[in-house]
């Protein structure tokens, strides 16, 4: 953890070798935005950042996930999908909103097709602001989550 923080404060470089910080399985749901935040999350998953090597794995089913990572404003059509993903996750799970849209709707507030952000609708364990947040900011937000859950995960 301390090592990860040290790297972050030194300035995040692409293709950096992150130290192992324990494991975190993340299920990512894009709930209907412009895909910008999703592209920055994808960058973390790719070779430039290689976050999976640092222990943060992206999984393709909520049943294996510890963290539900949400990008984009919550559209009315995606609300049941997101709810199903949340209930499909095993207990001791966390909800993370990445980007302005997922937090409060950003430029896509409530209308006939959109509910808005998650803030006020669901208890968020972390929210990472930005439009979109940089990969470094997303890593910092996820690292904060690991730090917060460290005592309980070691128990």
């Amino acid at each position: 953890m301390a090592l990860l923080r040290a790297i972050l404060t030194r300035g995040f470089r692409p293709a950096i070798r992150l130290p192992a910080v324990g494991t975190m399985a993340v299920f990512h749901v894009e709930t209907g935005g412009c895909e910008g935040c999703a592209m920055e999350v994808a960058a973390l998953d790719g070779a430039a950042y290689a976050l999976p090597r640092a222990g943060v794995r992206f999984v393709t089913t909520p049943r294996l996930a510890d963290v539900l990572l949400v990008t984009g404003p919550l559209t009315r059509a995606m609300a049941p999908v997101l709810e199903a993903a949340w209930h499909g996750m095993p207990d001791r799970k966390a909800l993370v909103a990445v980007g302005a849209c997922a937090i409060d709707g950003g430029p896509f507030g409530e209308n006939y097709a959109v509910l808005g952000g998650l803030e006020g609708r669901a208890p968020l364990d972390a929210s990472i602001p930005g439009c979109p947040p940089s990969p470094a900011a997303i890593v910092a937000g996820l690292a904060g989550l690991l730090g917060a859950s460290e005592p309980s995960s070691s128990a």
Partner: peptide
């Protein structure tokens, strides 16, 4: 889809 864990729009 729409939620398959991929980093793309639903």
């Amino acid at each position: 889809g729409p939620a398959d864990g991929g980093h793309h729009a639903p």
